[in-house]
Write a protein that binds this DNA or RNA. Structure first.
Lengths: 248, 248
DNA sequence: CCACCTCCTTGATCTGCGTCATCCGAACAT
DNA sequence: ATGTTCGGATGACGCAGATCAAGGAGGTGG
C-alpha cells in the first residue's frame, strides 16, 4: 500500500536523524552517559537502527540466540518468561533509556521474550562489538558494569516485595516506582499513562487481576490516586510512599 | 592465648599456600576460569588474603563503602538486607567459587550485609584493580559479564519462585538447587549439611519457619528426603525435581 | 546436674488473597 | 444497531499458609 510505504519511509528518515547518540534526548541516562563526544561517536558507530515495534510485537523470543543488547528509545516493553507447562511470568518492564537483554550474556540465549506494550523504538547494540569497545573505553565499561549492578540491586528489591509485602504495599510500590522513573526521564511523576494491562501488573507483582482491580479501587476511595482506565493521576504521593514501606 | 596464636599462624600459612589461583581446587568454577596460566598470575597478584570469618561474622555491612568483590573459597554466607523499620530479608546464599558483592558497584555501597554461616574463607578482589585488569584480559572481562548475567538470570528464577510457586514447590526447588550446586562443586548431590537455619531458609523463600518445618516433615513421610537437624539425605531426587516444577 | 538458650517441631486458629462467577463498558467487525 | 471480544470491576467463598501457642531437643556454661 502506498500510504504505508510513505509512512515507513518517513519513519526511516527520522530514525536516521535521531539515531545519533549526540542528538538523543536520552543520552544523559543511557549507556553512553559517561562518554566524551569523540568516544560517543565510536559508540554511535556500532549501534544498529531498528524499525519501530508495534504493540504486541516481540523484540526477541525466549530461547533465541543472544547477540545484542538493546536500549529503549521510546515506548515500553515487558519481559515474559514461560517455564515448562506453567503459566507465563512477567519479570520486568522497560522504559526509555533502559537496557534490555543483559541476562542473555551468560548462556548465550535470551531467558525470556521481550514484547512491546505500545509502539516502541530501540537501539540495537551488538554485544561482541560492545564488549570490544568496552576494552578501549573505560567509561563505557564502567557504565556497563553499573547497569548490570543496578539491575541486580533492583531485582533484590523485587524479591523483597514479592516475599514480604502485602498486596496494597505492592501496588503502592509499583506506582511510586513508576512515578520515580517518569520523573527521572523528565515526565510528570504525578500524571501518566500505564502501557501495561491490569493482567500484566498483577502477573508482575504476583497478584490476581481481581486483587489489582480491588486495591486500585480502594486507593481511589482513599484519595491516593485517580485512575480511569490506564490514565493515572497521583493525588497523594507521600501517602503512597508511606504505604509502600513494609512496616505497617 | 598461645593455643589460638599457634592456630592462627597455622591458618595463615596454609592460606598463603592455597591463595594462589593455580593451586586452588575451585579454579575451574571461579572468576579466572577462562584464563591462561600467565594471565592467571596477573589476576592472582591483585587478590588479597583474608583471615577466615567465624560463624556469624560479617564480610561487610549493609551501607558500607563498596571497594571489592569477594570470591568464596570455603564455607558459606548469607546476604541480608534491612529496609526501614522492617524485618530483615535474606536475599542470597553464597557457596564456594561464587562471587559476592557485585550488586554494590552501582551505588558504591553494599546493599546488604553478608554474614558467614560457618567458618568461611574468601578471596578479596579490589574492584578498581579488577576493572583495570579486565581491560587487558578479554577473557576475564567476559567472565565477569557472564557472572553478573548469570546472577540476573538466577534472580528472575527466584522471582518466579516467589510469585508463582506453592510452599512445597519452593522447598523442593531449594533442595534441588542446592543439590545441583553441590554436584557442580564435586560434592555429593544427595547428602549434605545445611549451613543455614530453618529461619534463614524460610526468610529466603518467603515462608514462615513453621511452614518450612511442616513441609520438611511431609517430604520425609513421602520418602523424598531424610532430614535430621541440618543433615540432609535426598532419597528421591527425581520426585523432588518434579515437585519443584510449577505445574501441579 | 541443672538452668538457660537457641533451634526446631507440632497443633489450633485466623485471614489475605486466590478462585469462581457475573457483569459492565469500550472497541471493532458484521 | 447488534453481536463479539477484550479489559476491567465487584461480590461470594474457600484455602494455603501466617500467626499464635506450647513443647521438645541439643548445646553451653555455671
Amino acid at each position: 500500500m502506498p500510504v504505508n510505504a510513505a509512512n515507513a519511509l518517513g519513519k526511516r528518515r527520522s530514525l536516521l536523524h535521531e539515531t545519533r547518540c549526540q542528538n538523543c534526548s536520552l543520552s544523559s541516562l543511557c549507556l553512553p552517559l559517561a562518554l566524551e563526544l569523540e568516544d560517543m561517536e565510536q559508540f554511535d558507530a556500532i549501534i544498529r537502527r531498528r524499525s519501530p515495534l508495534k504493540k504486541g510485537e516481540s523484540l526477541f523470543r525466549q530461547g533465541s540466540a543472544f547477540s545484542s543488547v538493546f536500549a529503549v528509545r521510546s515506548g515500553s516493553l515487558k519481559q515474559v518468561t514461560t517455564e515448562g507447562s506453567g503459566e507465563d511470568q512477567v519479570t520486568n518492564f522497560y522504559l526509555p533509556s533502559e537496557l534490555v537483554g543483559l541476562d542473555g550474556i551468560d548462556e548465550q540465549t535470551y531467558p525470556g521474550s521481550v514484547i512491546a506494550l505500545e509502539t516502541t523504538t530501540v537501539c540495537e547494540i551488538p554485544f561482541d562489538r560492545l564488549d570490544h569497545l568496552s576494552e578501549q573505553l573505560p567509561e563505557l565499561r564502567g557504565q556497563l558494569y553499573r547497569s548490570m549492578s543496578k539491575e541486580l540491586r533492583d531485582d533484590r528489591k523485587m524479591m523483597r516485595l514479592l516475599s514480604r509485602k502485602t498486596a496494597d504495599q505492592r501496588l503502592a510500590s509499583f506506582f511510586t516506582s513508576l512515578s520515580d522513573r517518569f520523573r527521572r526521564r523528565g515526565y510528570s511523576p504525578y500524571s501518566f499513562r500505564l502501557s501495561m494491562s491490569r493482567a500484566d501488573i498483577g502477573n508482575y507483582l504476583g497478584l490476581a487481576v481481581e486483587t489489582v482491580s480491588r486495591i486500585l479501587g480502594r486507593f481511589q476511595q482513599q484519595g491516593l490516586v485517580e485512575v480511569s482506565g490506564r490514565e493515572v493521576n497521583i493525588l497523594n504521593l507521600e501517602a503512597l510512599v508511606a504505604q509502600a514501606q513494609d512496616d505497617h
